[in-house]
Design a binder for these strands. Structure first.
Lengths: 113, 113
DNA sequence: AAGATATTTCCATGAACATCGAAATAGCAG
DNA sequence: CTGCTATTTCGATGTTCATGGAAATATCTT
């Protein structure tokens, strides 16, 4: 993970329409949904949905498996975990707040993470 | 937390320049940094930095405390935690994957979270 | 090959964004 | 009040984005 990838993934999620699509897939779980099923959930023109879905796929947040003429879309959980890790790691790296945190609340650790 | 706030926060972080600013503040820890110190780290025109910092503040990701003529900026850790929570909750809500996960790896639980 | 369905690509349009210099504001020091 | 420093607002410019209709592509079925 690096800042360029992280920024692009966050940008992909940082649009209400795409975030809705993504969360629909997260809720769907490992079984995934077809593009058409996602369209029923979010109610967009097919071309608009395709455009947004492509952004999510390009950034590695969604995987598509073809099954005949239909494409089954899945949230890529490892990508999400890596992104979250990137946001929270190096917390307080330029400060010795880990010791501070230990002193105050041993369980919680640093402010994030 | 709702999808509108989450999308706006993700959009705020979904720009390489702003993500760099934010991570600088996360690394700085609870002590924070002045706008000028952040500028030294990221090397932007003051007006550009101000523009981006405002976005982060407006979305609740950064807090500014005034100290005389200088503004001290802090990463808002609770906002980050809430955002991450929003991304991962409801994982598999439309599927009974929790049972699947229990069967396979009791510790890990659902794919995310 | 022909027909049917699922999905994507192309195209155009209006809106929002990123950048920076110049000017303006906020607050302290004297 | 004057000068000084830190930061923001304004204005302008080029870039990217979101949207959906129309046309194209992909795959299966017969």
């Amino acid at each position: 993970m690096n800042i360029e990838i992280a920024a692009r993934q966050l940008e992909a999620l940082g649009n209400e329409t795409r975030l809705g699509i993504y969360r629909t897939l997260v809720r769907a779980g490992t079984g995934g949904l077809t593009v058409g099923q996602v369209q029923e959930h979010v109610g967009l023109a097919a071309s608009t949905l395709s455009h947004h879905m492509k952004r999510l796929v390009d950034q590695g947040l969604v995987r598509q498996d073809r099954s005949g003429t239909t494409l089954i879309c899945h949230a890529e959980y490892p990508a999400m975990s890596a992104l979250i890790g990137y946001l929270t790691d190096e917390c307080c790296a330029d400060q010795d707040c880990i010791d501070d945190a230990r002193t105050e609340e041993a369980e919680a650790g640093a402010p994030i993470g």
